[in-house]
C-alpha cells in the first residue's frame, strides 16, 4: 500500500526537515520518562515484596531493677518463643542489644550515651504473607506476657513511599502523553505545510487518477522515513543516558533503598517508545492528508 516510490518533491519542503529533530527530542524525553517510571515501578514492586510478611517486634526494656538486663533478655526470649509457636511464623530472630545499638549509630553515634538510653529490644519477624496474621493479632498474642510490646509492619511509611512513587509514575505517564500529543501536533503541522507546498503536484496526481490513499501513502512514507531518523537518534541518546545513570547509581549501596533496575518490563516499555513514535508519525500524516484531501474537489 505504501509503495516504494515517492512522487512528491519532499526535499523542497523546508518544514519537514525539522521533523527528525523534533521526533528525536520527543523520543528522548519520552524514553527518559518511561525509563524513570519503569525503574521506580520496579523498585516499588521489589520493596513491597521485600517487606511483605516482614515485621519488627519492639520489646520495651525492663527498667529500674537490679537485674534489668537479664529480665529484658528473658522477656525477649519468651516473646520469641510465643512468636515461633504462631502458625504463620516463618522465623523470629532476636536482635541483640549490641546489634540494635549498631543500627542506631548513624543517628545517635556510639558511646556511653547510647548505652544509657532505654532502647527497646527488637525481634525480626517473618510471617507467611498469605496468612491472616497481622500486626494487631501478633501484638494480641504477645501482650499477655510482654506488656508494652509494639509490632510494626512498616505499612505506614512504606505506604507513603509507595504513594509517592505512584505519583511520580503518574506524572511520568502524563509527560509521555503530553509528548505524544506534542508529536502529533508537530506531524500535523509539518504535513499540512507539505500539503500546501505540494498542492500543485497533488492536483496533478489527482488528475492523472491517483486515489487519496495513494497520495496519503506518499506522505505517510515520507513521515515514516523522517520519524525513523529522529527515532533512531532519540533512542540511542536515551539509552546512553539511562545506561549512564545506571552506572552512576550502581555503586551506591543504600540499605534503606531498594535496587534501582529497569527490569524486563522496563526494557519492553522502553522499546515501545520508538515504535509508538513511528506509528504516531505515520498514522498522523496519513490521517491529516486524508482529511485534507477529502475537502478538495
Amino acid at each position: 500500500m505504501l509503495g516504494t516510490r515517492i512522487d512528491l518533491p519532499f526535499r523542497r519542503d523546508q518544514a519537514s526537515r525539522f521533523l527528525p529533530w523534533l521526533i528525536a527530542l520527543m523520543v528522548y524525553l519520552a524514553a527518559l520518562a518511561v525509563g524513570i517510571s519503569a525503574v521506580l515501578g520496579s523498585a516499588a514492586e521489589n520493596w513491597r515484596n521485600d517487606l511483605s510478611g516482614n515485621l519488627t517486634v519492639e520489646i520495651p526494656p525492663v527498667l529500674h531493677t537490679p537485674d534489668a538486663a537479664q529480665a529484658t533478655d528473658a522477656r525477649v526470649a519468651r516473646a520469641v518463643e510465643i512468636l515461633l509457636a504462631l502458625p504463620a511464623t516463618r522465623s523470629a530472630k532476636a536482635i541483640s542489644a549490641a546489634e540494635g545499638l549498631r543500627l542506631l549509630e548513624p543517628w545517635i553515634g556510639s558511646g556511653d550515651i547510647a548505652i544509657d538510653l532505654p532502647l527497646p529490644r527488637l525481634i525480626d519477624l517473618q510471617v507467611d504473607p498469605d496468612s491472616a496474621s497481622d500486626a494487631d493479632s501478633i501484638r494480641a498474642a504477645l501482650e499477655g506476657e510482654v506488656p508494652g510490646v509494639r509490632v510494626d509492619d512498616h505499612g505506614r511509611w512504606v505506604g507513603r513511599l509507595l504513594a509517592l512513587i505512584r505519583s511520580i509514575e503518574a506524572v511520568a505517564m502524563a509527560v509521555v502523553l503530553l509528548i505524544g500529543a506534542a508529536s502529533i501536533l508537530a506531524v500535523v503541522f509539518v504535513t499540512q505545510t507539505g500539503l500546501a507546498v505540494h498542492n500543485d503536484v497533488i492536483e496533478v496526481l489527482h488528475l492523472v487518477g491517483a486515489r487519496d490513499r495513494y497520495i496519503a501513502g506518499q506522505f505517510q512514507r515520507h513521515a515514516l522515513n523522517q520519524a525513523a531518523r529522529g527515532t533512531l537518534a532519540g533512542t540511542v541518546l536515551a539509552l546512553v543516558t539511562i545506561l549512564g545513570l545506571t552506572l552512576i547509581g550502581a555503586p551506591a549501596d543504600l540499605p534503606l533503598l531498594p535496587t534501582m533496575r529497569l527490569g524486563l518490563n522496563g526494557w519492553l516499555a522502553l522499546a515501545a517508545v520508538p515504535l509508538a513514535a513511528l506509528a504516531i508519525a505515520a498514522l498522523t500524516a496519513r490521517m491529516t492528508v486524508l482529511r485534507a484531501l477529502h475537502r478538495m474537489p
Binding site: 518533491p9 496533478v204 487518477g209
Partner: peptide
C-alpha cells in the same frame, strides 16, 4: 489531459512523468 502549461513534475524524469498515470493505477 494536456494542460496549457504542461504541468509536468519538474523533479521527475521524462519517463517518470509519462509513467505517473500507470504508477498511480
Amino acid at each position: 489531459v494536456v494542460f496549457q502549461d504542461f504541468r509536468l513534475l519538474d523533479h521527475l524524469s521524462t519517463l517518470d512523468n509519462v509513467a505517473l498515470p500507470l504508477r498511480v493505477a
